[in-house]
């Protein structure tokens, strides 16, 4: 699942912490509002960094993998 929710109301305009820090470049600025959005949620690796660092507590991450998993049996 990766990004469980991103509450734009809680996102602090122009803070950019998630955009700057995300190791897999999931976030991008929304040109109209200057807030962040999850532009590539399919690339979340559930590292929890954004959830932890977001000053507005706008992001909730689930450790359920967003990428497809494969099994040996």
């Amino acid at each position: 699942m990766g990004i469980k929710s991103f509450d734009q109301n809680l996102c602090i305009n122009g803070c950019r912490i998630c955009i700057d820090d995300c190791p897999t470049d999931v976030f991008a600025p929304e040109p109209a509002t200057g807030k962040a959005k999850a532009a590539y949620p399919e690339d979340c690796w559930e590292c929890l960094l954004c959830e932890e660092e977001c000053p507005g507590k706008a992001i909730k991450i689930s450790l359920a993998a967003v990428r497809k998993l494969y099994y040996p049996f």
Binding site: E52, S62, L63, Y70, Y71
Partner: peptide, 27 residues
């Protein structure tokens, strides 16, 4: 601790339940 808190938040109960444990492959 960050990880455990997140898993418990999703309903995994390490204290009282067996948790299904899987190996993935293909990578």
């Amino acid at each position: 601790s960050r990880v455990v808190a997140s898993l418990e938040d999703e309903g995994i109960d390490f204290r009282n339940q067996l948790v299904k444990y899987v190996v993935t492959s293909g990578y």
